[in-house]
Design a protein around this nucleic acid. Structure first.
Lengths: 155, 155
DNA sequence: AAAGTAATCGATACAACATATCAATCCAAA
DNA sequence: TTTGGATTGATATGTTGTATCGATTACTTT
């Protein structure tokens, strides 16, 4: 079940946990001075309900009662505040997903589309050294790891 | 001068070397069954003349005599055949540049826009192990390293 | 509780980037 | 030189995301 580690919807009691996630995010936005509105809650709730990295258009489609602009604005706000992160698939398709912690990277399954977090980035020191060897001072990096998740290897 | 390692235009004799690059690419395309046309050569030549990662629109602008569709098609063909690689900047701006070898990554300077290659990917083994620890079988990865190049550190 | 004020909303227009269409043209092999 | 398929370019379309703006809503102040 490692591949489903980020899955926040496939369990017995979707409401409570999902609602808690929404409340938590709304609370954090409130601390930053952003208001608590019904459309924004709907967007956050829809994001929390996703079990896979999703596209902005998929999010729009799942929220027919919320205006497109509002969905995009909400998504952008959450990316800017670090609540949602971007995921770049191997075919350069840009997707989004809930961000679970600070610095981390994604393990992306090319078969089922699942995503898992690589929370520790041991590679960072190596990259910093390699960059220094080329005269660069590293300040950041973008990394996505592609492959097959445990469940898809079995099949 | 490490940061300028990929610079193919700022030297004393632009023509010969640049022309050789174009001939080489045309030859490789020919081996794959693609034809040698004037517009395509112009596109390749314009790409070879770039000293920094560039956008598709910049390429179009530098080739007013070649149709937009042709520029995009040529660029896509070269990406598909591995002659050109995509570069993702820190602000998610997608750019392109000549690909110099097989597997490599980019060191991107956020100040001057220069790009250098990180030819050896020592981080690969670490990533493979980390992926395996999460039940994943790694098949590939995308990595960009951001920072400042040697010249920009001095300033 | 009422009111003021700025944030937010949604419909829509617009922008940036890239691909699909298709008749005309060109390359290269026979 | 002929010929068939690749290539071209003008243009339409698609995709993804942002700007505009009047109407509405949430939060604060009184």
């Amino acid at each position: 079940m490692i591949a489903a580690a980020n899955n926040h919807s496939d369990h017995e009691h979707p409401r409570p946990r999902s609602a808690a996630v929404v409340d938590d995010i709304v609370s954090q936005l409130s601390d930053l001075g952003y208001r608590d509105s019904e459309p924004r809650r709907l967007v956050i709730s829809a994001i929390a309900a996703q079990s896979r990295p999703f596209t902005a258009e998929e999010l729009c489609a799942s929220l027919p009662c919320v205006g497109r602009a509002t969905v995009y604005r909400g998504l952008r706000l959450l990316v800017e505040t670090g609540q949602v992160c971007r995921v770049l698939l191997e075919d350069h398709d840009l997707r989004y997903q809930l961000s679970h912690q600070g610095h981390h990277h994604h393990l992306l399954c090319g078969v089922c589309g699942a995503s898992a977090d690589l929370e520790v980035c041991d590679a960072e020191d190596i990259l910093r050294e390699a960059a220094a060897a080329a005269g660069f001072r590293m300040s950041g990096h973008w990394l996505e790891v592609y492959g097959q998740c445990g469940e898809c290897i079995e099949d």
